[in-house]
Design a protein around this nucleic acid. Structure first.
Lengths: 148, 148
DNA sequence: ATAATCTATTTGCATTATACAAATAGACCG
DNA sequence: CGGTCTATTTGTATAATGCAAATAGATTAT
């Protein structure tokens, strides 16, 4: 069997609310870096201020995304020279290419947003706009007919 | 190295626009089944009518999601008795539990929607609302200061 | 001095989500 | 009988991502 285990809560890409958009951390970090350069630890806190409190970010994921963004030339990094209360910070800086990439992300997310709205509207029209029918005794019959 | 290959286009959960919400196919199929019972092949076409044309569904994914939903008791299935122009169809029917599950999905998606809006608004305010600063020569200095 | 603690980054690993491809299968048509 | 259409199923590769722990420097308390 090649099936996923339905509704299982293990590790990995799990479905904890709110439902995530794939790789959303990427544009979120890029936007924060558009404000100003920053190191990973600060970015993790910055995510909350972006209004993503309900979207707790995993540290390892953040650092890996930053690593990948750098490998792709979307950001550059330098080790901070001044003393810190810990190991040297790696400060990330958005590149021109990264800005363009963020813009393309936004365009795609606007599409995602429209799609989400169509779905939610369809739900409200069909389900909430017709609350009675949910427990209507004839529903099963209608459904059978609908199956063509 | 445990790093992803950035921006690679192989198989798997890839980033093709519009950016997907994790497991979005699940609520989409549940909503279609709320309209009326249907078999997999018809549901694939139904997704387009839901306004998800830009969200082409992979057949195997659809069937696997249906299988998992049944295993979880969210839908039931029966083999269609009447003759078809192919192998017997498996017709899926939404259960009461499935309806409740769809409702919980919608609540989570509304959260996702709010989060997406906060992000898009933040982008517009910061980036589009201040187009000049993108190519401002002093930007790098400001960024450095911002890195605390 | 050294153990605990904080800040900060990195690495290992397990698991889910999902796309591409092909196999399977019944019915019908030429 | 081979091709084609409808329809479902299975194999497989890989990306995305969370949990946990290792690493490490600096500061503070014992």
């Amino acid at each position: 069997m090649t099936h996923r285990h339905a509704f299982r809560r293990g590790r990995g890409a799990r479905g904890i609310p709110p439902r995530r958009i794939n790789r959303f951390l990427e544009p979120a970090l890029l936007l924060l870096l558009h404000h100003h350069a920053a190191h990973g630890y600060a970015l993790i806190e910055g995510l909350n201020k972006l209004g993503l409190e309900a979207y707790p970010a995993d540290v390892s994921t953040v650092y890996r995304v930053l690593y990948d963004l750098e490998a792709a030339g979307m950001v550059t990094s330098t080790h901070e020279t001044e003393q810190t209360a810990g190991p040297p910070r790696r400060v990330y800086q958005l590149t021109e290419e990264g800005q363009a990439y963020l813009a393309s992300w936004v365009q795609e997310l606007e599409q995602t947003d429209r799609m989400l709205h169509r779905f939610l509207e369809a739900y409200q029209e069909h389900v909430e706009g017709d609350a009675a029918h949910t427990h209507n005794a004839t529903q099963n019959v209608i459904d059978q007919e609908g199956a063509q």
